[in-house]
Nucleic acid binder design. Structure first.
Lengths: 224, 224
DNA sequence: GTTATAAAACCGACCAGTTGGTTTGTAACG
DNA sequence: CGTTACAAACCAACTGGTCGGTTTTATAAC
């Protein structure tokens, strides 16, 4: 086998092993030795492909992000014509997907966060773009964000083993989140405050004001 | 100082140190030595108060849960008369509170999960009860769950540094989540029968198989 | 009030095992 | 023959946890 292929095979073997470990034993058990053991490679081999453990985490994250990005894109293409908020739909569907697929994805996230919280910047940056898109397409951006937040809440809760919902329940909730027709009735115009009492059935057709984004969390810690 | 006070002071010092470490350095850095260093106690002293590391995690979780439980109870008492879904309101408000208070709470959660995922059973059990209460008081239980999930999504995203929202935005979203009047218009059930449970497919843009979801993580790992 | 004794709180050296990472060697590719 | 890909032994730092000993507090007899 030629060298490039050989290398790629080892790389994938290592990453697959990492996913296996993280999902099976928990993020705290993801060590270089464990990866070597699980992948069949020697530790030296693993270290040849990834010079540091952080490089492994980063590669893991990138792989998973690419996976979900692809899912998202495909889904988006498919429903672009059936809803006027395709980005929102795609995000919700992707979050839903992340629950069922080999927990890998978000477990990788967890492992990353555990080891080096700064790695979270990667997925966050993607998020920022997605949020912008969702807001741009929505008549009621805040409502879109809330539907999105709900999906995310369901995912993260499930991921952390915090969920007290059955699979059926969760599925039903996702279904409802995706169903635009169930939400239009409470869409609000871009006007902020709103007279609290009724006003719920208003269905303003105005575009939206394009909010101003501000500073980041600015978490700045160092590790390793 | 008498013994009980002395003991409690040390215990709290250790716990405070643990919170400091976890929030400042990340969950992966929470070690017994680190706690000893940070708290000023000796390692032996720490071990006297907590026989194992898991005991530290457990105590941390309990402390945080107690804190939020108290907040929740107080809030509930306060709004019981102003809304017909006080449990939901209390949960949302508590989740909101958890964002602003020292990240401690959920970071402790993370540390716990990292070390021993089984510890998550503690907060989950509380959740199950809360969910039951919220469902019981709601005319549209699923909608209540979704509002709750949204609040949770906002919290967890923010907590993990995944949030791309500004504080103001998040605040606005929480405000809306708490405002019952903004949701009544889409309440389902109660009125006009309607087998709400299925039938959601009116406009579902989701081509999902709705297949049989598999079993739970079934993580049965041991550590240490 | 002093003294004797026990019990609790605390210290810090120590242990075996694990960690991420390095070094040295070797075989195959190009 | 040099570079690439891997293996295996190795290392210093660190891990959770133990253990013998010291200090502080509590009890109670004198």
């Amino acid at each position: 086998m030629d060298n490039p292929s050989r290398s790629e095979r080892s790389r994938n073997a290592a990453l697959d092993a990492a996913i296996t470990i993280v999902t099976r034993d928990g993020p705290g058990r993801l060590t270089l030795d464990a990866i070597a053991r699980e992948s069949g490679l020697s530790k030296g081999g693993v270290m040849h492909q990834f010079r540091t453990k952080e490089a492994v985490l980063r590669a893991l994250l990138e792989q998973q992000m690419a996976h979900f990005e692809e899912f998202s894109t495909r889904y988006l293409e498919k429903v672009r014509k059936t809803t006027d908020q395709p980005e929102l739909a795609a995000q919700i569907a992707t979050l839903r997907e992340a629950i069922s697929t080999p927990r890998a994805g978000a477990f990788a996230l967890l492992a990353a966060m555990n080891e080096n919280p700064d790695l979270m910047a990667m997925p966050r940056d993607v998020d920022i773009k997605k949020v912008a898109l969702m807001k741009a397409e929505a008549r009621d951006p805040d409502l879109a964000l809330l539907r999105w937040a709900a999906a995310r809440g369901l995912l993260l809760s499930s991921l952390f083993g915090l969920s007290s919902l059955t699979d059926a329940e969760r599925d039903r909730l996702f279904e409802r989140l995706l169903d635009d027709s169930k939400w239009t009735a409470i869409e609000q115009g871009a006007t902020a405050a709103a007279k609290s009492s009724n006003a719920t059935a208003t269905r303003a057709a105005s575009p939206r004001p394009a909010g101003a984004r501000a500073a980041k969390p600015a978490s700045a810690r160092k590790r390793n």
